[in-house]
């Protein structure tokens, strides 16, 4: 970058007008992009917080410490705390299998991993209702054995897992494929056990992709509405997650409370964003080195 700039400075006569023109275009593009971002991303966020605080801080605090809101918060965090580690483990195993081995049906498997992206979340939820609902395939058996899946925590976890599964795998597969397996082979020839190889070589090699995947997966797990709405049963204070709670409050004409709870979600999203930015900023050098060094 610095090379480019000094080069253009050293030849002002030749490049001057072209440069000025492209600067105008650049300014226009940047301006458009920033305006767009401000209108469509930043403004809504501001409005969420404005609406939430519209009736003062006390009302706001009351709204987010109300038992149902707290329960929704707890449920949302719990679901994320279960879903994210499972998706990380399954995602790593799946990506590794796909990146390392050639086998019949590999392409099908890769497409299957993407399936949750192309299936509407509502359908995802309905799939579980069809499987585990009272009228579903396993419903009668489950009921007989007193196991609750649908309209309870397990169903919410399953639906969330389905929707968020691709995030980790999608980040990891291309990265693992470009890395190849020689690092792992090198570790094996140096006497490392498969576990040592995995934890000391494979994992550190993909840790940035993995962290991105985890952040995205977590953000979606906490924010998922459609699939969860179908399998939740919307039992207040029991099976309502934060997004469902927002909808419920809004429909109950409790706009301020709805936005207060929404602000919690927005806050969680901002933390995710901040975590991502800090990671990128802090490890920019290391990430760049990892990507370019082969």
């Amino acid at each position: 970058m610095s090379k480019m700039i000094s080069a253009s400075r050293s030849q002002p006569a030749r490049n001057g007008s072209a440069l000025r023109e492209s600067n105008a275009v650049k300014a226009l593009l940047i301006g458009t992009a920033l305006t767009f971002l401000a209108l469509f991303l930043f403004l809504p966020l501001v409005i969420v917080f404005m609406e939430a605080l519209q009736r003062g801080l006390t009302t706001y605090l009351e709204a987010i410490t109300e038992p149902d809101a707290l329960s929704a918060m707890r449920l949302t965090l719990l679901v994320a705390a279960i879903v994210v580690p499972i998706n990380v483990i399954v995602g790593i195993a799946g990506s590794w299998t796909i990146a390392r081995f050639d086998f019949r049906g590999k392409n099908l498997l890769v497409s299957l991993i993407d399936l949750p992206f192309s299936v509407s979340p509502v359908i995802a939820g309905l799939i579980y209702v069809l499987l585990f609902g009272a009228q579903g395939y396993f419903g009668p058996w489950l009921r007989e054995h007193g196991i609750e899946i649908i309209f309870a925590l397990p169903g919410i976890v399953l639906a969330t897992m389905f929707v968020t599964f691709p995030f980790v795998a999608r980040e990891l597969i291309p990265h693992m494929e470009t890395l190849g397996s020689t690092d792992e082979e090198a570790a094996l020839t140096l006497g490392a056990s498969p576990w040592q190889t995995f934890f000391k070589i494979t994992l550190p090699n993909v840790k940035w992709s993995l962290l991105y995947g985890v952040l995205l997966c977590n953000a979606r797990a906490m924010g998922e509405f459609g699939a969860v709405a179908v399998v939740s049963g919307k039992i207040r204070g029991v099976t309502t997650t934060l997004p469902l709670q927002v909808e419920i409050l809004y429909n109950e004409y409790m706009g301020t409370a709805a936005f207060a709870v929404a602000s919690l979600l927005a806050f969680l999203a901002l933390i995710t964003l901040a975590a991502k930015t800090i990671l990128e900023w802090h490890y920019a050098k290391e990430i760049a080195a990892m990507r370019h060094n082969s």
């Binding site: 020689t182 090198a186 020839t189 056990s193 550190p204 090699n205 290391e286 990892m290 060094n293 082969s294």
Partner: peptide, 19 residues
């Protein structure tokens, strides 16, 4: 086992652990 074979293997592109 791999460990007990004790092979010193230098890979074509070295496969140094970049981290």
């Amino acid at each position: 086992s791999f460990r007990d074979r004790r092979i010193g293997f230098v890979f074509q592109h070295y496969a140094l652990f970049r981290h």
